[in-house]
Amino acid sequence: MNAIAIEQLCFAYAGGAPVLEIADWQVPQGSRVFLRGPSGSGKSTLLNLLSSTLVARKGQGKVQILGQSLSALSNRGRDRFRAQRIGVVFQQFNLIPYLSVMDNLHLAAHFGRGGDVRERATHLITQLKLPVDLLKRPAQALSVGQQQRVAIARALINRPQLLLVDEPTSALDRDARDAFVQLLMENYASEESTLIFVSHDTTLAQHFPVTADMRDLNKAWNPEATDVA
């Protein structure tokens, strides 16, 4: 099964010209893909479509994730599907600063598979080489590096089948970037899981068996335009 199947996508924001035109893009389940492209090439828009925070409406083409057509789901259905089957590591981490690490993870689990996540949280924090007592600390008390690893734990807490990683290394030096990617790969290794790592930093491509370039995928890309997300 393909983790991602896009056909004849022509996506435009209301009243605007198309910002994404992708004739065909298939990503088999279990793939590790480095998705690169300059600013304005449509990376963020594509990522939002893959995570179902944006939806291709009737006439704009087909986007299927894990065999599910996202446009066929209701808003609530898409929220549930995203929470249970898709993990996202954001560039800005998006942790709730005044909540403890454990509460941040509980919140993610609440919108996903639910249940007591204490054992899973402890396991992930340990895997990510963080002290277990960090679970009790508020997110705002953590270093940037610690917040980054907690963001990975939050994305993985519901065992997502698709993990989307959005430019998380822009503030790190080269050694720290390489260490981060290696850590991510080690903690998301499964034949059934698919990883899409989005970045304009081409030095990170060496860690991935597959590279996709937005300049090839997106036929709507205009190198002279800078307002495409």
Results as ranks from 00 to 15, higher is better:
M1A: 10
L9S: 01
L9F: 06
C10T: 14
G15L: 01
G15P: 07
I22D: 07
D24F: 05
Q26P: 00
P28I: 11
P28E: 15
G30W: 08
F34N: 01
R36W: 02
S39E: 13
S39Y: 09
G40W: 02
S41W: 00
S44N: 05
L50K: 05
L50M: 05
S51Q: 11
S52L: 14
T53C: 09
V55S: 04
R57W: 02
R57M: 07
G59A: 03
G59P: 03
Q60V: 09
G61W: 09
K62V: 11
K62P: 13
V63C: 07
V63L: 11
I65D: 03
G67R: 04
G67T: 06
S71K: 14
R76P: 00
D79V: 09
R80D: 12
R80F: 00
R82T: 06
G87I: 13
V88K: 11
F90T: 02
Q91D: 13
Q91F: 08
Q92N: 11
Q92Y: 08
N94L: 13
N94G: 00
N94C: 04
P97E: 14
Y98Q: 12
Y98P: 04
L99D: 03
S100C: 06
S100T: 15
V101A: 04
M102F: 01
N104Q: 12
L105P: 14
H110Q: 04
G112F: 06
G115F: 10
E119N: 10
R120N: 09
Q127L: 04
L128A: 15
V132M: 09
K136F: 00
K136P: 00
R137I: 06
A139W: 09
S143W: 02
G145M: 06
Q146P: 11
Q146A: 08
Q147P: 13
V150D: 03
I157Q: 06
N158W: 09
L162Y: 10
L162G: 07
L162I: 12
L163M: 03
L164T: 07
P168W: 12
T169L: 11
T169H: 10
S170F: 08
L172D: 11
D175M: 13
D178L: 14
A179N: 12
F180L: 15
F180S: 10
Q182P: 00
L183N: 12
E186P: 00
N187L: 07
Y188S: 11
A189M: 05
E191D: 05
T194V: 08
F197M: 01
F197P: 10
H200Y: 05
H200P: 00
A205F: 00
F208L: 05
D216P: 01
L217I: 06
L217P: 05
N218M: 08
A220F: 03
N222V: 06
P223I: 13
E224M: 15
A225E: 15
